[in-house]
Computed example of a mutant assay.
Amino acid sequence: MASMAVQLLGFFLGLLGFGGTLVATVLPQWRSTAYVGSNIITATAFMKGLWMECVWHSTGIYQCEVYRSLLSLPQDLQAARALMVLSCVTSVLAAVVSAMGMKCTRFARGSLIKSPLALSGGVCFLCAGLLCLVTVSWTTNDVIMDFYNPFLSSGMKYEIGLAVYLGYASACLSLSGGLVLCWSSCGTRSQGPLHVQRSRPPSVPPAFNNVYIPAPPYKPPDALRDNRAPSLSSVSSNGYRLNNYV
């Protein structure tokens, strides 16, 4: 019962990580305008995401434009797109495999593949969390390097957006869920043979000390006996009587 609760905890942590990764992939707040230098007082704010660029006006109006050309994008942005999409796909695969391998589901109940399925789901959650973590760490490094670059003007400098922080939280949730699933699955596999060995009924040794009653001696029936009285004048030789031939 405890391992089932642990598996459910890891599964829901992985699902939360997947939801956060999906939202972070869609949001445009990966890079926001840095208010430094002459940009301290401004009426607009620029934001850049993986799929679009947005402008926020002081009047509360948002204007977003989707990137139209994929090949014209920078290589780091293309790589970030691919990694985040791959992380989402891996999280979906992890959720499906983990759901089939958990003890609370009816799929392959009582089979030996339950534990390996849950373990595979945990490994997939770990991979999804690592992919998301690599992407947000790479973006953070690029933003910090550009911010402290003295050759860039203040209008081209950006700060870390909300989506990056959400990506960090989602990566931590996915990694935690994967670790919990792997730990619960390894614990179940190590305890499995012990339960099987204990559940075997003790074998009864064959009894060799049984005392068998000997069979009674054979006695021919009375009908087969010769009930004729032997005569005194009869002489037998080799089991044959001579008076039968004279």
Rank of each mutant, 00 (worst) to 15 (best):
L71N: 10
P28T: 09
P220A: 15
F11Y: 15
V36I: 15
G10H: 07
M52T: 05
P217D: 08
C104V: 13
N210D: 08
S176Q: 08
R225S: 07
M52N: 04
S233K: 04
S87C: 11
V96H: 00
A45T: 15
A99N: 01
S170N: 03
P28G: 06
G178K: 06
N227W: 09
C182A: 14
C88Y: 00
I113F: 11
S115Y: 06
F125T: 01
C172K: 00
W30T: 03
P220T: 08
M145C: 03
N243W: 09
W30M: 08
M52Q: 14
H195N: 10
A79M: 12
N149W: 04
L8Q: 12
A2K: 12
N238R: 07
S154Q: 08
T21W: 01
S3D: 10
S91M: 05
Y62R: 07
I213W: 04
A24W: 02
G177W: 05
C88Q: 04
L93F: 13
Y148W: 12
D76E: 12
R189C: 08
S231N: 08
S120M: 15
G19H: 00
S190Y: 06
L126K: 05
W30F: 10
A223F: 08
S154R: 01
L27Q: 14
S231W: 11
L194E: 12
S190Q: 12
P201T: 07
G19T: 14
P230L: 13
P74H: 09
Y35E: 11
G178F: 10
L70D: 08
R106H: 13
N209V: 00
L126G: 15
S236P: 01
A5L: 13
K103Y: 07
G161N: 07
L181A: 03
W30I: 05
N244R: 11
F107E: 02
A82M: 10
I160L: 08
R198W: 09
V164D: 01
G14W: 01
A108P: 00
G19M: 13
P193S: 07
N227Q: 13
V6T: 12
F125W: 11
S120C: 14
A128D: 01
Q197H: 11
S237D: 04
G129V: 06
G19P: 03
F12N: 04
T188P: 00
A82I: 14
I113S: 13
G167P: 02
N39D: 09
F125N: 12
S32I: 15
V36R: 11
Q78D: 01
L179S: 14
V196D: 09
V6F: 09
L126D: 05
L93G: 14
S115T: 14
N209I: 00
A94C: 06
S87E: 03
Q78S: 01
S32V: 15
P217F: 05
L15W: 04
K219R: 13
V180G: 02
A207W: 00
R200D: 03
K114M: 11
L162K: 09
